[in-house]
Design a protein around this nucleic acid. Structure first.
Lengths: 153, 153
DNA sequence: GACAAGTAGGACTATTTTAGTACTATTTCG
DNA sequence: CGAAATAGTACTAAAATAGTCCTACTTGTC
């Protein structure tokens, strides 16, 4: 139902890996090995994360990447923003003049309200939370139906 | 951040339109006119909605579509399920053997827990809610709270 | 100062998903 | 019977994703 791109998922792994190497710099190569993701992909993700301010980089020999802040201070919402982009939930009707229909706009607004709610909730979930071992197990049925909550537009 | 396809957005308009014509049957053509969406698209959406059990249809001349239940009893989660399909949030690592890395799996699981939480929260939002005019108060706190509570355990 | 290790950034390609369309069959009313 | 409407399926075009590659710039080390 909600959708998250693979890159965002991978990006979370990468961030978790950086969090695991407390303070020390980790090279893209090292992260690639540890996460089992391809080097070009990891490299691309790290660049995005630096650009978004979630990670910092040190160039040159012995360079590498590290979290810009403690894992407790990086929220799930920030991770999604950094990797999925700031897309809005729905283009709605505002652009194409369909909005003359009252009901249309009311509905579009509703999805946006939902999106705001979800974002706020995710703002309170930290990277550290994401790393917590699986709590009370989730019902497998649900997993199947899971995630397409991509409300990014 | 979260992405929802255009069709899902359109589908919501279509459902809202059906809700507006209380009980009476509405033809695909009529819905198309009222929503300003193209007939083929509306037709496709209505078929999906009937298939998902959210709408009922009457064939033949003077036929048409109607909601299968009152708008109050149709949840946002059901709408997303019907139109976005049962895609999983992340393929995770379970298939490709990457899961040997403990942290990877913990992370994957975390996103799934989040997704389940969001789904549960959306299960409490009805089509009738979606039609409410945008109140001054944006997101009902109960949505946010519901999401946060279930993520944190 | 030269070299090696590493990040920065952008361009490019293939694949998958999504959106939209078209056509044919079936049902039902008059 | 014929017109109006849905049902189902197949197809095409466009867009977003994922992934790769190449080149330039930085910095530590010998």
């Amino acid at each position: 139902m909600l959708r998250m791109s693979k890159l965002t998922d991978y990006g979370t792994l990468v961030l978790a890996q950086l969090a695991a190497s407390e303070g020390r710099l980790a090279s893209a190569h090292q992260v690639s090995v540890d996460t089992h993701l391809s080097l070009p992909t990891v490299s691309k993700l790290l660049k995005s994360l630096v650009h978004a301010g979630l990670a910092v980089s040190q160039r040159g020999a012995r360079g590498g990447y590290a979290l810009s802040r403690p894992a407790e201070e990086i929220s799930a919402a920030e991770i999604l923003d950094a990797l999925e982009g700031p897309l809005a939930i729905t283009e709605c009707c505002s652009a194409s003049g369909l909005c003359e229909l009252e009901s249309s706009c009311r509905v579009g607004n509703a999805w946006q309200r939902i999106n705001v709610s979800i974002r706020e909730a995710l703002g309170e979930v930290s990277l550290a939370d994401l790393q917590q071992p699986a709590g009370p197990e989730m019902p497998p049925d649900r997993w199947k139906n899971a995630i397409r909550l991509s409300i990014q537009h």
